[in-house]
């Protein structure tokens, strides 16, 4: 069977589908001071997965606000800098109207994913962190 670390080199998704892969990628991102990008990506996925039952509404609002506050509000943060102004406006607007939708972070997540695919992921595959592990 193909060792996991070779699978990680196939695509970002194969890397993010493996606990050890995530752990190593996060370690690398931390060294580069951009682990928030990965946390944000998973926070968006987790938010989308929240069940739409009653009683969860309050939790959703709280969580959406927490994600916004931690990753988007500070314009100098690594995540915020990679997200388009229009996307940030859309999220802020949704929050202010309390229009909480499971897909409200999808566009922002896609923008961060593109950034990882084009930048940090290829760098990771060439990094000492990955090569030493492999």
């Amino acid at each position: 069977p193909t060792p996991p670390y070779l699978k990680w080199a196939e695509s970002l998704h194969s890397l993010l589908d493996d606990q050890d892969g995530i752990h190593l990628f996060r370690k690398f991102l931390k060294q580069e001071d951009c682990a928030d990008m990965l946390d944000f990506w998973f926070a968006c996925s987790g938010f989308r997965k929240l069940e739409a039952n009653e009683g969860n509404e309050e939790k959703k609002v709280k969580l959406a606000k927490a994600i916004y506050k931690k990753f988007i509000l500070d314009n100098n943060g690594i995540v915020s800098r990679q997200i388009k102004p229009a996307t940030k406006c859309f999220i802020k607007d949704s929050l202010m109207r309390l229009h909480i939708d499971p897909a409200m972070f999808d566009q922002a997540q896609a923008e961060i994913q593109t950034m990882m695919e084009e930048n940090t992921y290829p760098l990771f595959l060439k990094s000492d962190t990955y090569l030493e592990y492999a």
Binding site: L16, D17, D18, Q19, I22, D39, F42, A43, C44, S45, G46, F47, K49, L50, K59, K62, L63, K65, A66, I67, K69, K70
Partner: peptide
């Protein structure tokens, strides 16, 4: 009440793949 950080951590963990 849950702190925002706990809520975020729980959300992030829920999206991670389970151990195979």
């Amino acid at each position: 009440i849950d702190s925002e950080d706990d809520l975020l951590q729980e959300c992030i963990s829920s999206a991670m793949p389970k151990k195979k």
